[in-house]
Write a protein that binds this DNA or RNA. Structure first.
Lengths: 397, 397
DNA sequence: CTGTTAGCGCTTTCAG
DNA sequence: CTGAAAGCGCTAACAG
């Protein structure tokens, strides 16, 4: 009875160690370790004595730090995002992916360490222990970070991240999805379409989509979705949303519908950028006669939004201007988040298997951990499926 | 030139260690450590040699596991939730808190390890290294986990979590907020009000709010908000939502508006639970005459929802039944998430400083880490403020 | 079946 | 200003 362990909990005594348990049970450290981990044979009596001692002392289990050092792994997987935490997970599609990732890692599997803002502070990945890293939705702003991860000899999985040497890629067929959506609109007779893109890179600037900016886009999904649209509508004007959010979509659509997309980009109806200010239907009433050519009916008849949240914002902006969706304006989204009562509309969109992508990433992590010497596997490509909702209709001439 | 370090990156060679750097620089381990951490004086030339060696070898910095073991801390803070990941962060209010927490921990501060589903699997907290734990939005399902955390001698911060010995509490004045909201409705002349609550405990059951269930509610915020309402409307019937989501709010409101809240709970207008089926205005048309007493106008004139997401679902259910908000039905929320275009309505709600709460938790973590021997500080109480939106109006008699 | 021994990679006294 | 040595708490070989 010389120890005070049976005293009240929460004391200031140091944490109970394995050696304390072993001593009390009258066995060696290693025996205690074997018993507590179930990783070795032990006689029933020894076993019982160790377990009793552990229970009596309130042993919390092996210190994860020490165990991690010894075993060379920490049971942690890092989730690295370029953006700040709030920005990265505001869009439910990312949460769905994260959910899938947690599932894919399994029940007893590693836990998730969130490392946001890697673009601004690459060194963050150097300070915490983890056995693998998953890059989610990153652009090239992540490359510095990637270099550090390589030095750490940590397997890296990219979820719609830039392809790079040694990175196991989980991809989405954004190009085909976006192309199909655009094709859908063309089949409905739309010619004047506008685009609202996701941010082009890590710098969250919004504004008109100029050819220069478009060429320099670095965020993989943004650029791929843009590429898909360009196969159908090579000249459609666009606006860059500042984020994947309803508010950003609203802002962008307002700009597009009010005809502010003529700053160097190709305007609607083939209007050259000759200083002609293209005016939206509801904006000022006058001013639609000064064009250089044919019927300058500037307003788009359809808008392709690069995410569902953006699309909802677009719809709101349209309706606020007295445009009915889809009668006056067709709107498409991307992602297929279950809009869960966000809006009355059944959005036409490309549904992506976000959860499955996350799970695939989880499996890729486990595979890499199981065999660290295996080369990076081939990219896994997930496909989107078109959901024909009620926000697209035949263009009225 | 006997080493192969200048060869291509990504090789299968083991990670570079501090001793490799020290050896190459021709200094001892300790000197190299001092230089690389800037934690000790060194002559300019030594310093330079070490840095050169590190750069040349591509040293990734000290192994966080080893450093953690040695220093007794890991630079990780656990965020523990009772629910699964997706459920826990679907409501933006929780993301806002998390954002605040990340901020409160500061730039060079610890990273966040997400440990969801603690109610189902308390042992998860034993397998990963962390220096402190933040319990967010937990009920009593967390108590087993809490016991493990205590054994680990880890400081614990509770964000609207059950009060317990040694837990630094960051609270919200839910009682007063809910009371004020109810009072607001009463001042507007409402008597027949319905309640849609958050889940009562870790078991996500939805259904009518019976006195028995109400008495046994364990989730702190649910129960406090309920207590606040009860100060004003002691007998108002209610329905338990299955989650804080639009869909759950919709379901619950549908039940309430269709008069399904009479299963043992007190019905509207003082109708005793005598087998009388209270029928909503729009449901079957007939059936309103069989009551035992005065004018059985069963439909509530106001609904108090325990979260904004739920409130949005309530509004949708109401509108779908031909009820105008607020003319036919007043609806209040709770939280004050910026509804960011989710709905046309300007929701009457109690705004809570979610970000500030998270920041406070972050500061509490840092304080506890700085002085582990300090006793748990007094609870910090944040207050809500009433936002009078456009979803409440005077009751029409 | 159990004990002894040797580290995992790093930081931190303490001497020189 | 630098080096030698100790050890964080645990597990994994290897003996007994």
């Amino acid at each position: 009875m010389s120890d005070s362990a049976t005293g009240g909990p929460g004391g200031r005594d140091p944490r109970i160690r394995l050696s304390d348990v072993a001593a009390r049970a009258g066995v060696s450290n290693s025996t205690a370790s074997l018993v507590l981990n179930g990783s070795g044979p032990a006689s029933a009596s020894t076993r019982q004595r160790v377990l009793d001692a552990a229970a009596k002392l309130g042993y919390a289990g092996p210190d994860p730090r020490a165990r991690g050092l010894r075993q060379g792994r920490s049971g942690i997987v890092a989730v690295v995002t370029e953006d700040a935490l709030g920005d990265a997970f505001r869009d439910p599609i990312n949460l769905a992916q994260l959910d899938g990732l947690a599932d894919g890692l399994g029940d007893g599997g590693p836990s998730l360490l969130i490392i946001p803002g890697a673009a601004d502070d690459p060194a963050r990945v150097s300070s915490s222990p983890f056995d693998a890293a998953v890059l989610v939705g990153c652009g090239v702003g992540i490359l510095d970070t990637l270099e550090l991860l390589r030095r750490r000899r940590v397997p890296v999985i990219g979820l719609e991240a830039p392809h790079a040497d040694g990175v196991a890629a989980i991809d989405l067929d954004n190009v085909e999805g976006a192309r199909a959506l655009a094709e859908h609109l063309r089949e409905l007779g739309h010619h004047r379409v506008g685009i609202v893109t996701l941010p082009l890179g890590s710098r969250r600037t919004s504004g008109p989509l100029t050819p220069g900016l478009e060429a320099a886009a670095t965020a993989p999904s943004t650029r791929e979705r843009l590429d898909g649209v360009r196969q159908v509508f090579p000249d459609a004007p666009g606006w860059i949303a500042s984020a994947s959010s309803i508010a950003a979509g609203y802002e962008a659509a307002a700009a597009l519908l009010d005809g502010r997309a003529d700053d160097g980009s190709v305007g609607f109806a083939g209007v050259e950028s000759s200083g002609v200010r293209v005016v939206g239907a509801e904006s000022s009433g006058a001013g639609a006669g000064a064009g250089s050519g044919s019927a300058v009916s500037a307003r788009p008849t359809a808008i392709l939004a690069q995410s569902d949240l953006i699309a909802i914002g677009v719809i709101r902006a349209a309706e606020e201007r007295g445009l009915r969706v889809p009668d006056d304006l067709s709107v498409t989204g991307f992602d297929g988040i279950r809009v869960d009562g966000l809006t009355d509309h059944d959005l036409t969109t490309m549904v992506q298997p976000a959860r499955a992508k996350g799970e695939a990433a989880g499996r890729a992590v486990l595979a890499a951990l199981a065999d660290p010497d295996a080369p990076a596997p081939d990219p896994v490509l997930f496909r989107t499926t078109l959901h024909r909702g009620a926000t697209t209709a035949r263009a009225r001439v």
